[in-house]
């Protein structure tokens, strides 16, 4: 599903975010990227969702080389990649419902399907009562759940989550992990960047540690 071969990324003037990293993620797999702040986790996710481009190496998602992908193909690919950004990227003046629904609206899904899916996600994440609230008027923890719901809304084949439990307490973290697990079991490939040990300590999924833009040990095949 995701192939990275000797990928490097440098931010100006000379900050080496990623150095010669290679990684292969199989379809339906769930992996955790761990590491300190500034280790390169977010950069790696940004390369996979084509928010940034690599300076060296190959980044391939669903068979598409992201450095050479055509805009039309990228648009279609992005509809199938759900991303929960660390800074949420919500529209503060739109309701919680609208923020989640827009991920499906770009795929022209029927309004009834959208309504059903959004309401189900809101229920699963414990924010059903916030449905019509403006996204800018809810707490950080609730905003984070809205961001996760939007990433999961369009039945993505690949879901990237950057610190998905950063602002959540233990109970809500369980809800979020439960949702991510159920999506993974339904076939969604997951790459989760986190330094919250509680969400990966008990799992059998691969955990890859990043330090100064490099993997501390070569990522094993599952």
């Amino acid at each position: 599903m995701v192939e990275l071969v000797k990928v490097s990324k440098v931010y100006p003037p000379d900050i080496m975010a990623l150095q010669d990293i290679s990684l292969s993620v199989k379809r339906g797999e769930m992996i955790f990227l761990t590491g300190m702040s500034g280790a390169g986790k977010t950069t790696l996710l940004k390369l996979i969702c084509s928010l940034e481009t690599s300076d060296k190496g190959l980044v391939e998602v669903a068979g598409h080389d992201l450095n050479r992908i055509k805009p039309v193909v990228l648009q279609r690919l992005r509809q199938k990649i759900g991303v929960a950004y660390q800074d949420f990227r919500l529209l503060p003046l739109q309701s919680v419902y609208q923020n989640i629904a827009m991920a499906m609206e770009v795929s022209y899904l029927p309004p009834a399907t959208i309504r059903k899916r959004v309401e189900s996600l809101l229920e699963q994440l414990g924010i059903a009562d916030k449905r019509d609230k403006l996204a800018g008027k809810i707490s950080r923890g609730e905003q984070q759940r809205v961001a996760i719901a939007r990433a999961a809304a369009n039945a993505p084949t690949l879901l990237l989550a950057d610190e998905p439990t950063g602002n959540l307490d233990a109970t809500i973290t369980k809800l979020v992990v439960g949702l991510l697990e159920s999506l993974n079991q339904a076939g969604t490939t997951m790459i989760i960047a986190t330094h919250d040990q509680s969400i990966y300590r008990q799992t059998n999924h691969r955990v890859i540690n990043l330090e100064h833009g490099r993997f501390t040990e070569p990522p094993m095949e599952p």
Binding site: V72, Q75, R78, L91, M102, V106, S107, Y108, N154
Partner: peptide
């Protein structure tokens, strides 16, 4: 601006 940028990231087509 912000919304259009987000739509782009969500895979909205040029037509959309």
């Amino acid at each position: 601006h912000e919304e259009l940028e987000l739509l782009r990231l969500l895979g909205a087509t040029n037509t959309y």
